[in-house]
Design a protein around this nucleic acid. Structure first.
Lengths: 297, 297
DNA sequence: ATAATCAATAATTTTATGGTATTAAAATAT
DNA sequence: ATATTTTAATACCATAAAATTATTGATTAT
């Protein structure tokens, strides 16, 4: 019959919401199952809202529970961020910027940004994480990341997006492939080949764009392998398992036995964009965005 | 030497940060001053950051304390909002409703429903997607849609269906066609014409119904074109490529050089129905169905 | 100097979290 | 069908930690 919700309830709730199993959740939390059951029940009483439906062997979230889970994830993430920030503030450091990125952004944009940031604000610490488009989207929404480097066009309400790098696509073929930049005439030449692509989950836009490139050339590509790492894709190409279409900038930084044939004439571009949350409270973000977009345009 | 920060700490912290006076803050919180002092000290230990400077008669916030105050206000505010929201969610008064529809529903039923929804529950967000009968069926089954507006009679187990709009059919002919509403006697007059219809995949029931209309008139129509968009069909008719049979309500919202001849005397009707999943957990759905079916019947 | 006021400390009480044992219901195995 | 296992909930209890009262030490006002 406690009056107030506490963060403890939130941690317990999240465990149950993720496991959907009281005993397993209790184990994960290193507390007893009855204790957990009672805390959750108490939480529901305080909030005057049922959060879980426990009927015959199954525990499921109610609509309110689903909604609350999202919000609690956000609040706890934001709190962790704040904990780190106040330490930095008390140390006289400005703050911290959490950056997510697709592997293909590592070649160009990220190093650029980091150099500029270090230059302008040596007190700012950055953390970098390679994540898929979608993982970044969720993390940015929930304050797990401050900015993300993604390939997409539309973002949910509350997020902002700005293109930062416009790249051509290139076909990646084994070094000994008979088609070269010199004798290359058009995608049609690759009609019969197996295509090795980044997986659709990783970046739907990339996938659709590659499809449209082939369709514009008049054929539907046979996709034999999908991967999330450029390294893997190049290795597959190297071993004659197919050809790939990737952003041209991926050429840098790898030393593989493959050659790039840049598709200069097609209209498709690999656009890398920054996303961030409109009402992100991190003061570092403003500075960062100025550096990123100020002199770009 | 407690492990975890709790919301209690936040409320205490805010009181002290606002009063800048432990005794007064304690009074405001209805707890004793020593209790408050110890909790704040504990909070500083957990966060490993000094938040207040207590020297000679004055209590002031540190830089970290100032920063934290802002964030805690934000977090507690957000939490209060969330508490209110989950109650609304569980009452079905807040949330999202994903609606699918055939293009031909856009003329009448959908705008009606949306207006009513907005009116009754301004906090409900809706998303709309134009999809074929079958795509809606699958999406509803997989919780991709909450409700769909389709033209069909039977639905798989687990789904529900209710007619919501009963429309006559009309023949659509070029504006300069020799048959008019005045001299129209029966479908038999169109025996020789090419027919332009919605494709069978899009709505099998519609297709079968149109066929039966012609068969009742004693002929089998020659179908020359199929489309999934009313716009396309009207354009084809406009260019003398044939005549169409469509639900009469499609007359609204288009400005094409065609005329509609309503088939009032035949028994066939273009029935638009809502489908939804029996055990859909979205609480918004109940309210929506009440609005849709409550005053209809 | 003395009184007053403040926050911190000490000792004690109260509260309620979390643990153990157990139950009721349901699923699974035999 | 019966026995066994598994699940979440209940009852009761121990104990950790929060809150209270009483007190101290320090600073400021009179």
């Amino acid at each position: 019959m406690s009056y107030q919700i506490e963060l403890r309830h939130f941690h317990y709730f999240l465990a149950v919401a993720e496991e959907l199993h009281f005993r397993k959740a209790a184990e994960r939390l290193f507390i007893s199952q009855p204790g957990l059951s009672r805390q959750i029940k108490q939480m529901e009483e305080i909030l005057e809202t049922q959060l879980f439906i426990r009927n015959k062997k199954k525990v499921t979230l109610t609509a309110a529970g689903v909604y609350l889970k999202d919000e609690i994830e956000f609040i706890l993430n934001h709190l962790e961020l704040t904990k780190r920030h106040i330490k930095l503030v008390s140390q006289g450091k400005f703050g911290e910027l959490n950056i997510g990125f697709l592997g293909s952004a590592m070649q160009t944009v990220i190093p650029d940004l980091l150099l500029k940031l270090k230059d302008a604000f040596p007190e700012i610490n950055t953390s970098l994480e390679e994540l898929s488009n979608n993982a970044q989207l969720n993390a940015v929404l929930k304050d797990g990341l401050d900015i993300g480097f993604v390939r997409m066009v539309r973002v949910p309400k509350g997020l902002c997006i700005k293109p930062v790098f416009n790249d051509t696509f290139s076909v990646v073929v084994p070094a000994n492939h008979n088609i070269t930049a010199a004798n290359f005439k058009g995608m049609k030449q690759f009609e019969g080949e197996n295509f090795i692509l980044f997986s659709q989950d990783y970046s739907p836009l990339y996938y659709d764009t590659v499809m449209s490139i082939c369709e514009d050339a008049g054929f539907t590509p046979k996709v034999s392998h999908k991967s999330v790492h450029a390294q893997t894709i190049f290795t597959l190409v190297e071993n004659n398992l197919g050809v790939a279409i990737v952003p041209t900038s991926l050429q840098q930084g790898f030393n593989m036995n493959v050659k790039f044939i840049e598709l200069k004439k097609i209209p498709q571009r690999a656009v890398l964009s920054v996303i961030w949350k409109e009402d992100n409270r991190n003061p570092v973000l403003k500075h960062c965005m100025q550096l990123l977009l100020g002199d770009k345009k």
